[in-house]
Structures are given as structure tokens and as C-alpha cells.
Design a protein around this nucleic acid. Structure first.
Length: 191
DNA sequence: ACATCGATGTACT
DNA sequence: GTACATCGATGTC
């Protein structure tokens, strides 16, 4: 299948503006301890963006967003779920919202309590549960174990739309997804 | 199809 | 006290 070599994405890949990195991650592979799949949905957040945790500057929670690019920013959402971001240039990050599961399906099913492949990783909280990602992963480099992030092997058809679940910055269309994928957190509005 | 609700850490007013 | 980058369950049209 892969026409390319599925190169490991290094720090330089992430050290760009999120508006560029977020769509470039569609079709990339994310594994944590060998469990994961293909990234099919992302959102971009930068420090000028009122929807971003980084908007009001560094705090204890968002410190990783102001650290070096190519690292993880993991935060707790609504007091319950964990969510994973890839840190890009200073104070910006890409929220990983959905995966198409390809590796370690049995371990994901156990962690999520369902066998339904479409429900394993179809949302930012779900995929962290499926991959057993928690706060202990915050600040870890993405180009070293337990993370593996591989470049997309084929050009993806990337859809663009408004971000989900925010109340500010709603006009900025920074949600990116693999067109037609059945593994998204929500179905995009059809044209 | 949509609306509402409960679970609750972290940051804000 | 209120809001929130969520999810799953429950209720209604």
C-alpha cells in the first residue's frame, strides 16, 4: 500500500503554524505502545485564538503548549476525559480528534468496553481511553517511545469545517478530516 | 433527527 | 459560582 517510507515525524514537522500542520496530519499513523491507527480528524488551536487553552498565556495545565514543538499536550476535559494534542510552534497545538483503528484492536476494545470499531477512537476523549493516554504522557516527545507518529503514505482528501464543542472562535474553520471516513467524531455537514 | 442531563478538574469571573 | 477543545444515556419529535 504505502508508496512512501512512512517516515517518523520529527520536531521540524511540528515546528510550523498549526493551520499547516493540522491538515498535514490527516492520514498519519499514531501508535502508543503499538496501539492506534490512522489520524482522520484534527483541530488547530493557536495562541491568538480565543478558543485555545493557550490564549490567556501559560498556566500549570497548558505548560506543554509553550514548550518545544513535537511533544504531547494532554489535558483533562470536563473533569473526566483526557485529550491529546501535538504541540506545534510556540503556544499552539493540534488536537487529535479521531483515529481509524488499525493496530491493537483487542487492547482498544478492552480499554473502551466495546467491540464496535467505529466507536473505539471516534472522539478526542475516546481515543485517549482506547490508547490508555493520561496525564503521564503530557510533555513527552512524539518521536520517541511510547509514541510513534508516521507521515501519511498517500495524499489524503482533507475536508475543512468549523471546530466542535467551542463557543469562542467559532468562525475559524480549523477542523480537518479525512473526507468520507466513517471513523470521525461527527459527520460533517454535507455540501 | 434533536435536546437535556450528569459526571467533575481546571481556570476564570 | 460558572464555563468548558466530552461522552453516553435518556427523553422527545
Amino acid at each position: 500500500m504505502s508508496s512512501g517510507s512512512n517516515a517518523i515525524l520529527q520536531r521540524a514537522f511540528f515546528a510550523r503554524d498549526v493551520e499547516t500542520v493540522a491538515p498535514a496530519l490527516i492520514g498519519a499513523i499514531l501508535l502508543v505502545d503499538g496501539v492506534g491507527g490512522m489520524i482522520v480528524e484534527t483541530e488547530a488551536y493557536d495562541s491568538n485564538d480565543p478558543a485555545s487553552h493557550a490564549y490567556r498565556g501559560p498556566t500549570a495545565r497548558n505548560a506543554s503548549m509553550f514548550g518545544p514543538p513535537g511533544h504531547a499536550y494532554v489535558y483533562r476535559s470536563y473533569g473526566i476525559h483526557w485529550c491529546l494534542n501535538f504541540v506545534c510552534q510556540m503556544g499552539s497545538g493540534v488536537l487529535i480528534r479521531a483515529l481509524e483503528p488499525t493496530a491493537g484492536l483487542d487492547r482498544m476494545a478492552q480499554a473502551r468496553g466495546t467491540d464496535d470499531i467505529r466507536k473505539l477512537c471516534s472522539g478526542p476523549g475516546k481515543l485517549c481511553a482506547a490508547l490508555s493516554i493520561d496525564k503521564s504522557f503530557d510533555g513527552k516527545p512524539l518521536d520517541q517511545p511510547p509514541f510513534v507518529v508516521l507521515a501519511a503514505s498517500d495524499a489524503a482528501t482533507v475536508g475543512i469545517g468549523p471546530r466542535i464543542g467551542i463557543t469562542r472562535g467559532v468562525a475559524t474553520p480549523w477542523r480537518f478530516y479525512l473526507e468520507g471516513s466513517p471513523f470521525l467524531s461527527r459527520r460533517p455537514r454535507s455540501a
